[in-house]
Amino acid sequence: MAVTNHDRVGKSLLLLRAGLAPFVAREFENVYGDRAAEETSRFLSEDRFAANRSIAELDTGGLLKLMWEAWNDVFRRTLGQAERSLLSELRDWRNKWAHQEPFSSDDADRALDSVERLLTAVSAREAEEVRKLKLELRRLVYDEQVRTEKRRLGGSLIETAASTSLKPWREVVRPHPDVASGRYQAAEFAADLWQVYLGEGSDEYRDPGEFFRRTYLTESLKGLLTMAIRRLTGTGG
């Protein structure tokens, strides 16, 4: 099954959790010491999904929320405003992913890039794995753009060749005089066999030589004529 952009973002969020959890735990311990678990619960007390969980038990959404809520007390000591902006953005991407919303390639690229940047800021080794996901996505997008461009150029090259090298059909095939002069009538295209029987009608239907001169005998028409002759002569058909 093909990997979707939603899958790629989901994998990057798992890597984000793996890289952030040790950093968040370390920073809380540096600030609160033995009260780290208690303070974690305090910051997440209004979140029924994350309350009373240890940092190691929090999912990606819980870690991002904890970092956001404890920013001034804990994380502004080691991270800057750029990382706070990334934090806000990643909370939005995580919510979009959790609600099964589709991701365009541009959105997925942006989400992967932001995950990589935040992981790099906290010196997490998972940043390199996310970078590989991002570069693979960019390669796929580039390959598709190349294929699309080749198809577009291929069509235009054919059109260009046709317009520059092919002659108008009137210069290649000479129409019959009655067609060229405008005297051709569509009603005469199909023979009126009763008129042929009476010896009336246009020359191309009354004169066998003229008829076959102006009629291209396809294999099907040859077979039809052969069958008709056999039936008329009583020899089969």
Rank of each mutant, 00 (worst) to 15 (best):
Ala191Met: 11
Ala191Ser: 04
Ala191Leu: 11
Ala191Trp: 04
Asp192Tyr: 01
Asp192Gly: 03
Asp192Gln: 01
Asp192Thr: 01
Leu193Gly: 03
Leu193Met: 10
Leu193Glu: 01
Trp194Asn: 09
Trp194Gly: 05
Trp194Gln: 05
Gln195Trp: 07
Gln195Ser: 11
Val196Thr: 02
Val196Tyr: 02
Val196Gln: 06
Val196His: 06
Val196Ser: 00
Tyr197Met: 01
Tyr197Leu: 10
Tyr197Glu: 10
Tyr197Val: 07
Leu198Gly: 05
Leu198His: 04
Leu198Arg: 09
Gly199Pro: 02
Gly199Leu: 08
Gly199Trp: 03
Glu200Gln: 14
Glu200Leu: 09
Glu200Gly: 05
Glu200Lys: 00
Glu200Trp: 06
Gly201Cys: 10
Gly201Lys: 00
Gly201Met: 03
Gly201Val: 04
Gly201Ser: 08
Ser202Asp: 07
Ser202Gln: 07
Asp203Cys: 06
Asp203Glu: 15
Asp203Asn: 11
Asp203Ser: 14
Asp203Lys: 13
Glu204His: 04
Glu204Gly: 05
Glu204Pro: 02
Glu204Ser: 09
Glu204Tyr: 02
Tyr205Asn: 08
Tyr205Arg: 02
Tyr205Ala: 05
Tyr205Ile: 12
Arg206Asn: 10
Arg206Gly: 06
Arg206Lys: 15
Asp207Thr: 09
Asp207Ala: 02
Asp207Pro: 04
Pro208Tyr: 07
Pro208Leu: 04
Pro208Val: 10
Gly209Val: 13
Gly209His: 08
Gly209Ile: 13
Gly209Asp: 15
Gly209Glu: 15
Gly209Met: 05
Glu210Gln: 11
Glu210Ile: 12
Glu210Ser: 12
Glu210Gly: 00
Glu210Tyr: 01
Glu210Pro: 03
Phe211Met: 13
Phe211Leu: 14
Phe211Trp: 15
Phe211Pro: 04
Phe211Lys: 05
Phe212His: 06
Phe212Gln: 03
Phe212Tyr: 10
Phe212Gly: 03
Arg213Gly: 15
Arg213Pro: 08
Arg214Phe: 09
Arg214Gln: 15
Arg214His: 14
Arg214Met: 12
Arg214Asp: 15
Arg214Ala: 15
Thr215Phe: 05
Thr215Lys: 00
Thr215Leu: 06
Thr215His: 05
Thr215Ala: 04
Thr215Ile: 11
Tyr216Gln: 10
Tyr216Ile: 15
Tyr216Cys: 04
Leu217Gln: 05
Leu217His: 06
Leu217Ala: 11
Leu217Glu: 10
Thr218Ala: 14
Thr218Ser: 15
Thr218Ile: 11
Thr218Asn: 14
Glu219Cys: 01
Glu219Tyr: 01
Glu219Trp: 00
Glu219Ala: 14
Glu219Arg: 02
Glu219Lys: 05
Ser220Val: 05
Ser220Tyr: 01
Ser220Pro: 00
Leu221Asp: 12
Lys222Cys: 13
Lys222Ile: 10
Lys222Thr: 13
Gly223Met: 04
Gly223Pro: 03
Gly223Cys: 09
Gly223Gln: 08
Gly223Ile: 04
Gly223Thr: 13
Gly223Trp: 00
Leu224Met: 12
Leu225Met: 13
Thr226Glu: 12
Thr226Tyr: 00
Thr226Leu: 07
Met227Glu: 12
Met227Tyr: 01
Ala228Gln: 10
Ala228Asp: 04
Ala228Trp: 08
